[in-house]
Design a protein around this nucleic acid. Structure first.
Lengths: 200, 200
DNA sequence: ACAGGAAGCGGACCCAAGTCCGCTTCTCTT
DNA sequence: AAGAGAAGCGGACTTGGGTCCGCTTCCTGT
């Protein structure tokens, strides 16, 4: 009967065994290379060689370099995402929108500060890559919902996310604007928008 | 006597004749190629070939591809810059800061909409290129001065400029968010910040 | 006019991302 | 157990940005 069900309802196409094996090989290789040599060591060729796999395989698995790096970041991103969906307020559900937005940016900036190089790589490896990652879509949607009361929440969410773009903040860091000022600045921007909407 | 002066005060190193000739050749070639085939046709190799010049020459003149494209945009940028420095209010001097900021973004968005592809190329050709162009420095300084009364004008100026980044707006356009909504959204952001500062 | 040195020139070369395609491996079906 | 077809594999190849360096052109001082 189990067999019957399986035949009748062929499960969504699963990853083949060799494919799955190579996925973890590549990811482990990439992690190793990054740990040793930073983003400079992360050429696709080098990753493929270290993983003992052909270059084509890497691209087949991850689409492009940006996808590979995103996959590397996936675990950390998920932590944040779970905190948003299931965690305690103010990051999780339960607090008023304004506080949740503040909590999100505070947490995101921590995440960004911890992984700036990789995030930057994942956002700039291909032009426009930033906006197509699952993560971006998630953050945007989250903010859009929280800003539902404000004018054009869709656009506003994009603009707010622009303030935590990796290449901008790499530049700010280089110019001596530290994470404390970034935190304060972003918080001020969020407050400004919510305050504007709260008034007649 | 003219000769004397010239000898005593050797003018700042001028561009050599052949160099100047090649600069205009390259720029004209690039303009031609772009007019015909858009940004896709703008590979450095193609530009060099069209200009009848070696590839190395292009890089020597313009530094990198981003620099070449910036040079293409230079004329249009200057118009805006002159309007800011010498033109009539509210874009030029004389109007209150808030209105000047609004006027700037309005004008900038018009410029951006007219040259989105080229601006995008100049901002993304090299990672971080955006922040190093003379134009960006100019816009940033302008905004920073106008926002002098607000908290952390330096950071704020960067964040506001983030809202008119070319790759973001390319994406917004693709998602059906038109220039009218961008205009409104940016104007709202500016207003929110100024309003926040005007209150106790 | 000319000599010397700086500035410029060009194209071969390098590196890294991404594509292609003939071959191999897996998995499903009977 | 075996055959067939899909999925995956790998590495040669393409493309495009950027560097290098021996040669040429220009400008300056005499």
């Amino acid at each position: 009967m189990n067999d019957e069900l399986l035949r009748i309802l062929p499960r969504p196409p699963e990853e083949r065994a060799d494919a799955a094996r190579n996925r973890v090989r590549v990811l482990e290789a990439a992690g190793r290379l990054f740990a040793e040599g930073g983003t400079d060591a992360l050429s696709v060729d080098a990753v493929a060689r270290e993983a003992g796999v052909g270059k084509g395989t890497v691209f087949r698995r991850f689409g492009d370099k940006s996808g590979l790096v995103s996959a590397l970041l996936d675990r950390k991103e998920r932590e944040l995402q779970e905190g948003i969906v299931f965690g305690p307020p103010p990051l999780g559900p339960g607090a008023p929108p304004r506080e949740r937005v503040q909590a999100f940016f505070s947490a995101y900036i921590t995440y960004l500060a911890d992984h700036l190089d990789l995030v930057r790589l994942s956002e700039t490896a291909a032009p426009g890559a930033r906006f197509r990652t699952g993560a971006y879509v998630f953050w945007h949607r989250h903010l859009e919902l929280l800003c539902a009361g404000l004018p054009d929440a869709d656009h506003l969410a994009h603009v707010l996310l622009g303030a935590v773009a990796a290449d901008l903040n790499t530049e700010l860091l280089a110019r001596g604007i530290g994470w404390d000022r970034v935190r304060a600045g972003v918080a001020a921007a969020v407050d400004a928008h919510f305050a504007a909407a709260e008034r007649p």
